[in-house]
Amino acid sequence: MTTLRHEFYETDEKLTLSIFDKGADPEQVKISFEPRKFTYEHGDKSLVLEPLKGQIDPAKSDYTVGKVKVEVRLVKMAHGRWGTLVGDAPDPLTAFPTSAASTTTTVRKQQKNWDRLTTEILSKEKEVSPDQDPNAGGDAAVNDFFRKLYADADDDTRRAMMKSYSESGGTTLSTNWDEVGKAPVEVKPPEGSEWKKWAA
Protein backbone atom coordinates (compact mmCIF):
# COMPACT_ATOMS: atom_id res chain seq x y z
CA MET A 1 0.00 0.00 0.00
CA THR A 2 1.23 3.49 -0.89
CA THR A 3 0.39 6.34 1.48
CA LEU A 4 -0.69 9.36 -0.53
CA ARG A 5 0.66 12.89 -0.18
CA HIS A 6 -1.92 15.22 1.30
CA GLU A 7 -2.38 18.69 2.75
CA PHE A 8 -5.19 20.62 4.41
CA TYR A 9 -6.55 24.02 5.36
CA GLU A 10 -9.34 24.76 7.81
CA THR A 11 -11.92 27.19 9.11
CA ASP A 12 -13.70 26.97 12.48
CA GLU A 13 -16.55 25.00 10.84
CA LYS A 14 -14.79 22.60 8.46
CA LEU A 15 -11.47 21.18 7.31
CA THR A 16 -10.66 20.79 3.59
CA LEU A 17 -8.25 17.96 2.82
CA SER A 18 -6.50 17.60 -0.56
CA ILE A 19 -5.30 14.09 -1.45
CA PHE A 20 -2.90 14.08 -4.40
CA ASP A 21 -3.99 11.04 -6.42
CA LYS A 22 -3.62 12.09 -10.08
CA GLY A 23 -6.13 10.55 -12.46
CA ALA A 24 -8.11 8.79 -9.70
CA ASP A 25 -11.08 6.83 -11.06
CA PRO A 26 -14.24 8.00 -9.21
CA GLU A 27 -15.68 4.48 -9.59
CA GLN A 28 -12.69 2.92 -7.82
CA VAL A 29 -12.30 5.48 -5.01
CA LYS A 30 -13.54 4.26 -1.62
CA ILE A 31 -13.94 6.82 1.17
CA SER A 32 -15.36 6.29 4.63
CA PHE A 33 -16.17 8.96 7.21
CA GLU A 34 -16.40 8.08 10.91
CA PRO A 35 -16.63 10.51 13.87
CA ARG A 36 -12.86 10.27 14.64
CA LYS A 37 -11.57 8.39 11.57
CA PHE A 38 -11.18 9.05 7.83
CA THR A 39 -10.21 6.35 5.28
CA TYR A 40 -9.34 6.76 1.57
CA GLU A 41 -8.59 3.81 -0.73
CA HIS A 42 -7.91 3.68 -4.47
CA GLY A 43 -6.28 0.52 -5.80
CA ASP A 44 -3.05 -0.01 -3.84
CA LYS A 45 -3.01 3.58 -2.58
CA SER A 46 -4.51 4.56 0.74
CA LEU A 47 -4.69 7.21 3.42
CA VAL A 48 -6.01 6.53 6.93
CA LEU A 49 -6.28 9.37 9.45
CA GLU A 50 -6.99 8.16 12.99
CA PRO A 51 -7.76 9.45 15.52
CA LEU A 52 -8.79 12.72 13.95
CA LYS A 53 -7.91 15.72 16.14
CA GLY A 54 -11.61 16.46 16.64
CA GLN A 55 -14.96 14.89 15.88
CA ILE A 56 -16.57 15.23 12.44
CA ASP A 57 -20.13 14.88 11.20
CA PRO A 58 -20.00 11.94 8.73
CA ALA A 59 -23.45 12.79 7.33
CA LYS A 60 -22.42 16.31 6.29
CA SER A 61 -18.85 15.54 5.16
CA ASP A 62 -18.28 14.93 1.41
CA TYR A 63 -15.65 14.78 -1.34
CA THR A 64 -14.97 15.52 -5.01
CA VAL A 65 -12.69 13.46 -7.28
CA GLY A 66 -10.72 15.74 -9.61
CA LYS A 67 -8.09 15.11 -12.32
CA VAL A 68 -5.13 15.95 -10.08
CA LYS A 69 -6.44 15.54 -6.56
CA VAL A 70 -9.37 14.42 -4.45
CA GLU A 71 -10.84 17.20 -2.30
CA VAL A 72 -12.44 16.10 0.96
CA ARG A 73 -14.55 18.35 3.18
CA LEU A 74 -14.71 17.29 6.83
CA VAL A 75 -17.46 19.12 8.74
CA LYS A 76 -16.52 19.67 12.40
CA MET A 77 -18.95 18.83 15.20
CA ALA A 78 -17.41 21.44 17.53
CA HIS A 79 -16.33 24.76 16.01
CA GLY A 80 -12.68 25.68 16.41
CA ARG A 81 -9.25 25.18 14.86
CA TRP A 82 -7.49 21.81 15.08
CA GLY A 83 -4.04 22.92 13.89
CA THR A 84 -3.28 19.33 12.85
CA LEU A 85 -5.21 16.42 11.30
CA VAL A 86 -4.63 13.70 13.85
CA GLY A 87 -3.95 13.66 17.56
CA ASP A 88 -5.17 11.99 20.70
CA ALA A 89 -6.32 15.28 22.23
CA PRO A 90 -9.46 14.82 24.34
CA ASP A 91 -12.55 15.07 22.18
CA PRO A 92 -14.70 17.89 23.58
CA LEU A 93 -17.88 16.02 22.61
CA THR A 94 -17.02 12.81 24.44
CA ALA A 95 -17.47 12.20 28.15
CA PHE A 96 -14.36 10.88 29.85
CA PRO A 97 -13.80 8.47 32.76
CA THR A 98 -13.23 10.11 36.13
CA SER A 99 -10.13 8.07 36.92
CA ALA A 100 -7.62 5.77 35.25
CA ALA A 101 -9.08 2.82 37.13
CA SER A 102 -12.44 3.16 35.40
CA THR A 103 -11.21 3.36 31.80
CA THR A 104 -13.76 0.80 30.62
CA THR A 105 -16.77 2.77 31.85
CA THR A 106 -17.85 6.06 30.39
CA VAL A 107 -19.03 8.56 32.94
CA ARG A 108 -21.48 11.24 31.90
CA LYS A 109 -20.26 14.69 32.80
CA GLN A 110 -22.44 16.56 35.22
CA GLN A 111 -24.05 19.58 33.63
CA LYS A 112 -23.19 22.90 35.28
CA ASN A 113 -26.08 25.02 36.43
CA TRP A 114 -25.09 28.32 34.79
CA ASP A 115 -28.03 30.20 36.34
CA ARG A 116 -27.01 29.26 39.88
CA LEU A 117 -23.35 30.01 39.15
CA THR A 118 -24.28 33.44 37.79
CA THR A 119 -26.36 34.29 40.86
CA GLU A 120 -23.58 33.16 43.22
CA ILE A 121 -20.93 35.25 41.48
CA LEU A 122 -23.13 38.34 41.34
CA SER A 123 -24.05 38.05 45.01
CA LYS A 124 -20.34 37.88 45.96
CA GLU A 125 -19.33 40.73 43.67
CA LYS A 126 -18.61 44.02 45.46
CA GLU A 127 -17.35 47.31 44.15
CA VAL A 128 -13.57 47.43 44.56
CA SER A 129 -11.79 50.73 44.92
CA PRO A 130 -8.49 51.45 43.13
CA ASP A 131 -6.85 51.45 46.59
CA GLN A 132 -7.80 47.80 47.14
CA ASP A 133 -7.06 46.64 43.58
CA PRO A 134 -4.71 48.60 41.29
CA ASN A 135 -6.55 47.21 38.26
CA ALA A 136 -9.96 48.46 39.40
CA GLY A 137 -11.22 51.54 37.65
CA GLY A 138 -8.28 51.42 35.23
CA ASP A 139 -10.70 51.30 32.37
CA ALA A 140 -13.94 52.18 34.09
CA ALA A 141 -15.85 52.79 30.85
CA VAL A 142 -15.18 49.27 29.57
CA ASN A 143 -16.02 47.71 32.94
CA ASP A 144 -19.24 49.71 33.14
CA PHE A 145 -20.16 48.72 29.58
CA PHE A 146 -19.84 44.98 30.32
CA ARG A 147 -21.57 45.34 33.68
CA LYS A 148 -24.50 47.13 32.00
CA LEU A 149 -24.58 44.62 29.12
CA TYR A 150 -24.77 41.79 31.64
CA ALA A 151 -27.34 43.49 33.87
CA ASP A 152 -29.69 44.24 30.95
CA ALA A 153 -29.32 40.81 29.31
CA ASP A 154 -31.86 37.98 29.37
CA ASP A 155 -31.12 34.65 31.10
CA ASP A 156 -29.77 32.90 27.97
CA THR A 157 -27.41 35.78 27.19
CA ARG A 158 -26.12 35.79 30.78
CA ARG A 159 -25.59 32.03 30.70
CA ALA A 160 -23.73 32.35 27.39
CA MET A 161 -21.49 35.11 28.76
CA MET A 162 -20.63 33.17 31.94
CA LYS A 163 -20.03 29.85 30.13
CA SER A 164 -17.96 31.29 27.25
CA TYR A 165 -15.78 33.43 29.52
CA SER A 166 -15.29 30.67 32.11
CA GLU A 167 -14.52 27.79 29.72
CA SER A 168 -12.29 29.82 27.37
CA GLY A 169 -10.05 31.02 30.18
CA GLY A 170 -11.23 34.60 29.64
CA THR A 171 -10.33 34.64 25.93
CA THR A 172 -13.90 34.55 24.57
CA LEU A 173 -17.09 36.37 25.59
CA SER A 174 -20.20 35.30 23.69
CA THR A 175 -23.83 36.34 24.12
CA ASN A 176 -25.17 33.57 21.86
CA TRP A 177 -26.48 30.73 24.08
CA ASP A 178 -27.66 28.69 21.02
CA GLU A 179 -24.03 28.38 19.92
CA VAL A 180 -22.28 28.30 23.31
CA GLY A 181 -24.71 25.84 24.91
CA LYS A 182 -23.94 23.05 22.40
CA ALA A 183 -20.31 22.36 23.27
CA PRO A 184 -17.39 23.51 25.42
CA VAL A 185 -15.93 26.89 24.41
CA GLU A 186 -12.37 26.63 23.14
CA VAL A 187 -9.53 28.81 24.34
CA LYS A 188 -8.66 31.39 21.66
CA PRO A 189 -5.59 33.37 22.73
CA PRO A 190 -4.80 36.63 20.91
CA GLU A 191 -2.92 36.24 17.63
CA GLY A 192 0.79 35.74 18.17
CA SER A 193 0.38 34.35 21.69
CA GLU A 194 0.13 30.81 22.96
CA TRP A 195 -2.23 29.38 25.61
CA LYS A 196 -0.51 27.45 28.41
CA LYS A 197 -2.10 25.86 31.43
CA TRP A 198 -0.18 26.48 34.64
CA ALA A 199 0.35 23.51 36.90
CA ALA A 200 -1.41 23.89 40.22
Rank of each mutant, 00 (worst) to 15 (best):
K163L: 10
G54W: 01
P35C: 14
T175V: 13
I19M: 05
V70R: 05
R73D: 15
P189A: 01
K182V: 12
V48A: 04
L93E: 15
Q110K: 09
P26M: 13
D57V: 00
V142W: 12
K76H: 09
Y40M: 08
T64E: 14
Y9H: 09
K126H: 13
E120H: 00
Q28I: 05
E179A: 15
K109E: 14
R36E: 03
T104I: 00
T84L: 10
P92M: 00
E71D: 13
E191I: 12
K109W: 00
D154Q: 05
D12L: 13
A153D: 09
K163I: 13
T94N: 02
D91S: 05
I121T: 11
L47I: 06
G138D: 14
P90E: 11
L85A: 04
K14D: 10
A136Q: 06
T105H: 14
G137L: 06
Y9S: 06
G80C: 03
T105G: 10
V72H: 11
K148Y: 09
Y40V: 10
M77L: 04
A183D: 07
H79V: 06
S166H: 00
D91Y: 06
K30I: 05
K197C: 02
Q132H: 07
D115M: 05
H42R: 02
D88P: 06
K22A: 15
T98R: 07
V128E: 02
S123P: 00
F33W: 06
K60T: 08
V180S: 03
A200Q: 05
T103A: 15
A24Q: 08
K182A: 14
K69L: 02
V65G: 07
F33I: 07
S61M: 10
V107P: 05
V70F: 02
S193H: 12
V187T: 06
E10H: 02
E71C: 00
K196I: 13
A141K: 14
E13W: 10
K196S: 01
E50K: 11
G192W: 15
F33K: 01
G169P: 11
K182T: 15
D133P: 04
K112R: 12
E71F: 02
V185Q: 00
A199F: 11
A95M: 01
T175S: 03
I121A: 12
W177N: 01
R147A: 15
A200E: 10
S168R: 02
G54A: 04
T16Y: 07
T105D: 15
M162C: 05
E125C: 12
V180Q: 03
D155F: 11
S164N: 04
W198S: 03
W195V: 01
E167L: 00
A95Q: 02
E7G: 03
D88M: 05
R5A: 12
T2K: 11
V68G: 11
F38D: 07
A141G: 12
G43F: 00
Q111I: 08
A59I: 04
V185P: 01
L4W: 08
A160D: 01
